[in-house]
Computed example of a mutant assay.
Amino acid sequence: MLNKTLVPQSVVREIQAMIQSGTLKAGEKIPSQREFAQKFGISRASLREALLTLETLGLVKTEAGRGTYVTSGPGASSSGMAPWRYSDIHSAFDVFQTRLMLEGEIVRLAAGRLTQMDLDALQRATTAMEEAWEAQDLVANVEADLEFHKTIVSACSNSMLKALYQTVRDQLVETQRQPIPMTDPERMKQSIAEHRRIIEALRANDGAGARREMETHIRNTARCAGLDP
Rank of each mutant, 00 (worst) to 15 (best):
G75R: 15
G75T: 05
G75H: 12
G75Y: 14
A76M: 09
A76K: 06
A76C: 01
A76Y: 06
A76N: 08
A76W: 01
S77H: 05
S77E: 07
S77Q: 11
S77A: 03
S77F: 08
S78R: 09
S78C: 08
S78Y: 12
S78P: 00
S78F: 14
S78A: 11
S79C: 06
S79Q: 06
S79P: 01
S79D: 03
G80F: 09
M81G: 03
M81R: 10
M81H: 02
A82Y: 01
A82N: 03
P83L: 02
P83K: 07
P83A: 07
P83C: 10
P83Y: 01
P83E: 00
W84R: 12
W84D: 02
W84M: 10
W84G: 06
W84T: 06
R85C: 02
R85V: 02
Y86N: 04
Y86G: 01
Y86H: 12
Y86L: 06
Y86A: 04
S87C: 05
S87Y: 14
S87A: 15
S87N: 14
D88S: 12
D88C: 08
I89P: 04
I89F: 12
I89R: 11
I89Q: 14
H90C: 14
H90G: 14
S91Y: 07
S91Q: 13
S91L: 12
S91G: 12
A92W: 09
A92M: 11
A92E: 01
A92L: 14
A92I: 15
F93E: 07
F93V: 11
F93S: 13
D94A: 15
D94Y: 09
D94N: 14
V95A: 07
V95D: 05
V95I: 14
V95N: 07
V95E: 08
V95L: 08
F96K: 13
F96N: 04
F96I: 05
F96Q: 04
F96C: 10
Q97T: 12
Q97G: 13
Q97I: 04
Q97N: 13
Q97L: 09
T98F: 10
R99H: 12
R99G: 03
R99P: 00
R99M: 06
R99V: 08
R99L: 02
L100D: 10
L100T: 04
L100K: 00
M101T: 13
M101I: 15
M101W: 12
M101V: 13
M101F: 10
L102S: 09
L102W: 03
L102M: 14
L102K: 03
L102R: 05
E103F: 03
E103K: 01
E103T: 06
G104F: 00
G104P: 01
E105H: 03
E105D: 03
E105C: 01
I106N: 03
I106D: 01
I106Y: 05
I106T: 08
V107P: 00
V107C: 07
V107N: 05
V107E: 13
R108L: 07
R108K: 13
R108F: 11
R108W: 05
L109E: 01
L109S: 03
L109Q: 04
L109F: 00
L109M: 04
A110V: 13
A110H: 10
A110M: 02
A110L: 05
A110N: 09
A110Q: 03
A111C: 08
A111I: 07
A111P: 10
A111H: 06
G112S: 13
G112R: 13
G112I: 11
